[in-house]
Every structure is written in structure tokens, then in C-alpha cells.
């Protein structure tokens, strides 16, 4: 589904250009769940931003192929229409735009891009009800402005609600677990598990093993200084929980990708 090859990206800062992604290789197939872990500042969110087309990053090398399309050539909205979704680490508040209006516009633009008719209001309301229940979002929140006045946890839940509504092929969850209480974490994870099919895939960025107890990954990758320095199965996460990152970062020669 997704192939990332030797992806390098830099940003322009006040002190000059700074390379953040230093050659990422990753392959994600339909039906898989990949976890990406790694210390603060290692480039996890940057990878998510580059994959979704946020401005400000310059890709200097490498390529990203998503279902045979060169993803880096597409606009952010077209990537979303192709089926890529990012649950943001820090969702923004948008005063004046209601969740309903926002989602209705999004769904209908995605449908339009596929040559489909707009969704009827009845179907839309049905879908909202169903998906709100799935992720345990208070339906009251849906009529409110996007994320305005939402608690940290509510914002995260709202991201997963949007994911459920848009039904993407590839979902990137950037630290969705941070800010969620234990019960919320379980509901959200259950929601994700229910959304899982053999045709979609998830990249789960997290610092904690806890989330991976619920959303069990097929692969775990460690990102360090803009590169994936280690990959393994779910046991790698357990090992990291116990030993931290030192054992990897101190001995970079031990890297196997």
C-alpha cells in the first residue's frame, strides 16, 4: 500500500536549513499495523507531516508511493481523497466551523473526487450516530465548533471520530494515546480495532507500550535522529518499555533494518 524509499526532508528555520528526516525506508501493506516509537524530536511527527503534505518541509531525496501513485506530487486534500488520514498530535481549534459542517464538507468532497453523489442528510446523521458511538464521543460535541473548548482527551477522541467518519485506507495516529485517560484509551483503541479490515492499514506513533496492548502492531520501528534505526515485532516495544532507547542509540552499528 505504502512504500517509503530513502526519504529525506528538511525545513527552513531562522538559523538556516535543518535536515530532519535523514533517509527513511518503510513499507506498509494492507491489513498491517505498524508502530513507530522513538525519543522526542526524532522526527516522527515530521514524517507524518511530510506524508500528509504539510507546507514548510522540503523533500530533498527519496520517494513515497501510495497505491502506485507518487504521493509527494499530490496536494494535501488529494492525499486525503486517496485515503490517507492523520490523527494529529495537536489538533487545532477552528472557531466558527461546526464539526458537522466540517465533516459533511469533507465527506462530500471525498465522494465528489470519486465521482459519487453527495451523501444525503439522513445517511450523514445515521453515520454520525453510529461512529460517535463507536469511539465513545458525546454526540453533543458534534454540533460544537471543531475542537473549540474540547479537553485534550476530547480532541484526541474527535480525531478518531473523524477517522471513523472518513474511513481512510491508511491512518496515521500521532500520539493519539497521550492525553487520554485509561478508559478513554480503551474505548478509542477498541474503536480502532473495529475499524480494522484486511484492506486498510495503520501507522501508530506512540511513546508507550500501553496503547500497543490494545492495538497490537505487526511491526514496531524505532526512529532516531531522522532514521528508522531498528525494526522488529511487538516484542521490540516491550523491550523498549523496559530498557529505554539507550541500548539502540549508543550502539548504532547494531542497527538492523
Amino acid at each position: 500500500m505504502l512504500t517509503i524509499k530513502n526519504l529525506k526532508a528538511k525545513i527552513a528555520t531562522e538559523e538556516g536549513e535543518k535536515e530532519i528526516l535523514k533517509g527513511i525506508d518503510l513499507k506498509v501493506n494492507a491489513g498491517e499495523i505498524h508502530a513507530i516509537m522513538g525519543p522526542n524530536g526524532s522526527g516522527k511527527s515530521t514524517l507524518a507531516s511530510v506524508l500528509t503534505g504539510r507546507e514548510g518541509y522540503e523533500v530533498t531525496e527519496g520517494e513515497v508511493i501510495f497505491e502506485k501513485k507518487n504521493l509527494l506530487d499530490e496536494s494535501p486534500e488529494d492525499r486525503a481523497r486517496l485515503g490517507i488520514f492523520l490523527a494529529f498530535q495537536y489538533p487545532v481549534e477552528i472557531p466558527g466551523v461546526s464539526n458537522t459542517n466540517f465533516l459533511k464538507t469533507a465527506i462530500n468532497e471525498i465522494r465528489k473526487s470519486k465521482g459519487e453523489e453527495p451523501m444525503s442528510s439522513v445517511d450523514f446523521l445515521k453515520l454520525i450516530k453510529e461512529k460517535a458511538k463507536l469511539v465513545g464521543l458525546d454526540p453533543q460535541m458534534i454540533s460544537r465548533y471543531v475542537n473549540v473548548g474540547f479537553s485534550g482527551g476530547e480532541k484526541k477522541r474527535n480525531e478518531i471520530f473523524q477517522l471513523a467518519m472518513l474511513n481512510p485506507k491508511l491512518s496515521i495516529l500521532d500520539e493519539t494515546d497521550s492525553g487520554l485517560d485509561i478508559d478513554a484509551l480503551r474505548t478509542v483503541a477498541d474503536g480502532v480495532n473495529k475499524l480494522r479490515t484486511k484492506d486498510n492499514a495503520f501507522i501508530v506513533i506512540t511513546h508507550y507500550q500501553r496503547l500497543l496492548d490494545y492495538i497490537v502492531p505487526d511491526f514496531v520501528h524505532v526512529m532516531y535522529d531522522g532514521k528508522i534505526v531498528k525494526s522488529g515485532d511487538k516484542d521490540l516495544a516491550l523491550h523498549l518499555e523496559e530498557h529505554g532507547y539507550d541500548w539502540i542509540t549508543n550502539d548504532k552499528n547494531a542497527v538492523t533494518v
Partner: peptide, 14 residues
């Protein structure tokens, strides 16, 4: 631009 990107990332054109 953060708000713009948020909307775009959900499939809404500029």
C-alpha cells in the same frame, strides 16, 4: 495556515 491544513488534510480543497 494550520487551520487551512487541518481542513485540507480531511479532503477539503483549498
Amino acid at each position: 495556515e494550520d487551520e487551512m491544513f487541518y481542513l485540507q488534510s480531511r479532503g477539503i480543497g483549498r
